[in-house]
């Protein structure tokens, strides 16, 4: 028997990056309805996606050059 899990996992990933076609959405929906493993996978991937986006929003404020990095760059630049 062939399983649809591989394709389902791929579609679960794809839908975070593109719009699925109606046909793809239908196939995925039907498969997820009967496959607990793939539902778990879908939840995990979505959760990671959300956490990363949250973190990216914070990075704007958090990123800092440390003293050593700053010194390295300053030395490579023309002096005042």
């Amino acid at each position: 028997m062939n399983h649809y899990c591989r394709q389902a996992s791929r579609l679960v990933s794809d839908r975070l990056d593109r719009d699925l076609t109606l046909r793809e959405r239908l196939h995925l929906w039907l498969h997820l309805a009967m496959c607990g493993l793939c539902r778990g996978n879908a939840r995990a991937l979505k959760q990671m996606h959300r956490l990363l986006r949250e973190r990216a929003a914070q990075m704007d404020d958090d990123a800092r050059l440390d003293a050593e990095q700053r010194r390295r760059i300053a030395e490579a630049l023309p002096p005042e």
Binding site: H3, Y4, C5, R6, S9, L37, C38, G40, A44, E54
Partner: peptide, 26 residues
């Protein structure tokens, strides 16, 4: 590493039931 030739999961992925709500956990 994840799927058998017939497309099934080789190893059951874990359940991921929890949704970390606490800021610290996230």
């Amino acid at each position: 590493p994840w799927f058998a030739p017939n497309g099934a999961w080789l190893e059951a992925p874990s359940a991921w039931r929890f949704e970390p709500a606490a800021e610290l956990e996230r």
